[in-house]
């Protein structure tokens, strides 16, 4: 094989598409491309539900589906409840599988990214406590280590404050 072809084959690596989600507190997490159903450029009407965990902001009505809304930054302790703005900037609607939906509060519009297997890395030590929510992680060239969320774990678990699953 000519040298040029060998170099080309060596530099092309299969990638998977993902969305980068900027949650409150300055952390970026990722979900698979197909997990995102809709991005609310402005926060929709949120119905607060009393006596639920602080990081659960409430529910919204999406086409006759009741969708729980989570602020992961609050859950992870990246954002203090007292200093947390009551105004949600934007939100992303996510497919959890089995016809279930969930929504995450975001700081910015999601960004597309292509993730190669070779970019996989360990969860940063500061995030080890919530490894149950992000079984894998990759290194992004500008954002650093980005945890990949397990949405069923995020929305299908009773989460205790500080990042420990009950």
């Amino acid at each position: 094989m000519p040298l040029q072809s060998q170099q080309t084959a060596a530099t092309i690596e299969p990638t998977s598409s993902a969305w980068l989600l900027d949650i409150s507190g300055g952390l970026t997490v990722a979900v698979a491309l197909q997990d995102v159903i809709y991005v609310y450029p402005e926060a929709p009407q949120v119905f607060p539900v009393p006596q639920t965990p602080d990081h659960v902001l409430g529910v919204l009505n999406w086409q006759q589906h009741l969708v729980p809304i989570i602020d992961l930054g609050l859950y992870l302790g990246l954002q203090q409840i007292d200093s947390h703005s009551s105004v949600i900037k934007m939100m992303v609607l996510l497919n959890l599988g089995d016809s279930k939906l969930g929504a995450l509060a975001l700081e910015q519009i999601p960004e597309r990214a292509d993730v190669a297997d070779s970019s996989q890395c360990e969860l940063p030590a500061s995030l080890q406590a919530w490894g149950c929510l992000a079984p894998s992680c990759f290194m992004h060239n500008t954002r650093g280590a980005v945890p990949i969320l397990d949405l069923k774990a995020v929305f299908g678990s009773e989460l205790s404050p500080g990042g420990l699953e009950e």
């Binding site: 119905f47 539900v49 009393p50 006596q51 639920t52 965990p53 659960v56 529910v59 009505n61 006759q64 009741l66 729980p68 989570i70 969930g102 995020v154 929305f155 299908g156 678990s157 009773e158 989460l159």
Partner: peptide, 25 residues
């Protein structure tokens, strides 16, 4: 039924319902 992520040990809310577009506890 209330989504699992919304469950709390000390809550009287057992579920949610839609009533003509209104969300009810």
């Amino acid at each position: 039924a209330l989504p699992v992520c919304m469950s709390s040990d000390h809550s009287m809310v057992t579920g949610l319902a839609l009533n003509d577009g209104e969300i009810l506890l």
